[in-house]
Amino acid sequence: MDIFLQLLLSGLLLGGVYGLLSLGLTLVFGVTRIVNFAHGEFVMLGMYLTYFLWQLGFDPYLAAPVVFFACFAVGVVTQHLLLRKTLTMPHLVQVFVTLGISVVMQAGAQLLFTSNFYFVRPSYGNAMVEIGNIRLPLTTIIAAVLALIGTALVHLFLKKTHTGAAIRATAQDPYAANVVGIEIKTVYAVTFGVGIGCAGLAGALLAPIYPVYPTVGLAYSLISFVVVVLGGLGSLPGALIGGLVVGLLETFSAYYISPEAKEATYFTIFIIVLLLRPAGLLGLRGSETMGANH
């Protein structure tokens, strides 16, 4: 029983981390209909920033807000310089531009930081929370809890603020939004900024748990894809639920089947979901066949 509970909680925590990883990806898609293939690289950027701030003496969790805003700025600039032009272009261009960004960021990281592994090691890095025989690492708990809070905050931001309302309006119908005087360009820039900020934040919270190196992003991109497709591309709660499902699947299949089986498990589920219900668990039905420019 202990084992089951331990696996359940570990899986939920891992799922929370995955949800956090995927938040930015799903937000950007929901509004701009761009699937950001450089998502994992922005997480990597967040991790590097956190590492260097930690080297300067910042606690990683104090660094996290700084990283969020830095990545927000990077996101706005990237959107303005590169992605703004692609909004009216075919999907192919959007996908390829983000792929190009990921290639450039990976190569850049390798030139600047070499292929060394960097580790962020705060003093409480090994701290545990013990409930009976169940032991959970503090850093992972923080990441998972902040994933919940982050999702809630972004949700509130969309529901309660003026900008949020504009974003939602644009997501639903960019043309109508334009007609009623919403500056769509600004909306897209802000959305992309928030999305990349979330990716960076995820990086900051992952940094005390995982090492950072130039090619770390690819794995994070792949997991985020699985998570958001499962939860429904564009749905915020979907990302969280998708993350939890993947986390639990991974943990349980690794223990009860074999640690090697977990990858196969979630990619199979990914393909099945894409084929049977491409909109995901919580996604809008039909979004997968949406035309080019919506």
């Binding site: 331990q6 696996l7 570990s10 981390v17 943990t251 690794a254 223990y255 640690p259 090697e260 977990k262």
Partner: peptide, 20 residues
């Protein structure tokens, strides 16, 4: 023996098996 893919994000199932 316990095998796993090297770019894994969580090894707790493996650790638990070895422990138990």
């Amino acid at each position: 023996t316990y095998a796993y893919a090297k770019d894994t994000n969580d090894l707790s199932p493996v650790v638990l098996k070895v422990r138990d």
